[in-house]
Design a protein around this nucleic acid. Structure first.
Length: 282
DNA sequence: ATTAATGTTCAGAA
DNA sequence: TTTCTGAACATTAA
């Protein structure tokens, strides 16, 4: 599930408790769950991290990056159902990876939990680390986008704006849920072609993107009805209560009272209000 | 039994 | 070259 606000919440929850800690052990599949998708060499490579100190925990797009002494870093991609936890997993059967700490801090381990098992963990360094986190695969972070970046994004593609917002090379961090919410707040139909948007409409997307994502971070992300997403201490987020369109098909728009519609774009559900989101498909 | 799910990536076709 | 479609990864809940 995690998109930018959920991953940012994971990082903020974990950061103060693991920075400075020494990794005393690293185990993949500690509960004999199905193997996590990871580089085959990770188990071996991870031995090089034992005894090293964690120097930073940060977010790059929808990934959690754990920097360790010497320049290497664990890169965690939660994908659909991955969680980064300090304690209290939703269940013990889906714990995939554990970093143990033996230095007497407030938590004695960091866990990667993943119900569906689509998430990945890798240990990278040097050019490879820079490449995976660099602009070859990931564009400018959604919270760092300038107006010029947004204009370039829209000008350079004929795709529908909702689909363009999901292209991590064009803007990094926005996922399926927040794309729908951003376009609703901006009052723009998800079916509009990106390169046909006016300057004013692009400015609206820029402003609303920042407002939605920052508000979602303040509410510690969205926990949908399946309850999967939790913060580092297994607590639900709160932003789902602020959703205007996502998963509200048939319910009435809070802004104009028209019924919310669900369509499919690029094989993914899009929710929007035909009453107050202007353009093709409205 | 069928469908859909917050993500990513690849192959192949248009 | 860009865009689109379908499938794949693996699991669960409605």
């Amino acid at each position: 599930m995690p998109e930018l606000p959920e991953v940012e919440t994971m990082v903020r929850g974990v950061r103060p408790h693991v920075i400075g800690r020494v990794i005393s052990a690293f185990e993949a599949c500690p509960n004999h769950c199905r193997p996590i998708m990871m580089q085959p060499a990770l188990r071996v490579q991870a031995r090089t991290a034992i005894g090293k100190r964690i120097v930073d925990v940060r977010r790059r797009a929808k990934r959690v990056v754990i920097d360790i002494e010497g320049g290497a870093a664990f890169v965690i991609e939660p994908r659909m159902t991955g969680l980064v936890l300090l304690s209290d997993p939703p269940d013990p059967g889906h714990l995939r990876v554990v970093w143990r700490f033996d230095d007497g801090g407030d938590y004695d381990a960091l866990w990667f939990w993943d119900r569906r098992g689509l998430g990945t963990v890798s240990l990278l360094e040097g050019d490879e680390l820079a490449r995976i986190l660099g602009n070859e695969f990931l564009g400018v972070d959604a919270l760092d986008m300038t107006e010029a970046d947004w204009i370039a994004l829209c000008r350079d593609t004929s795709r529908e704006i909702k689909v363009a917002l999901l292209d991590q090379k064009r803007v990094a961090g926005i996922g399926n849920l927040y794309a729908s919410e951003i376009l609703h707040k901006a009052g723009i139909s998800p079916r509009r072609k990106a390169h046909r948007l006016t300057r004013r409409e692009i400015q609206a997307i820029a402003t609303c993107s920042r407002e939605i994502l920052e508000s979602a971070i303040l509410h510690e992300g969205s926990t949908l009805s399946d309850g999967t997403y939790r913060n580092a201490l297994n607590k639900s987020g709160g932003y789902q209560n602020a959703h205007q369109v996502y998963a509200r098909e048939g319910e009435l728009c809070f802004r104009c009272a028209a019924p919310i519609r669900r369509i499919v774009q690029a094989q993914r559900a899009t929710f929007y209000c035909p009453g107050c989101q202007r353009g093709r498909g409205a």
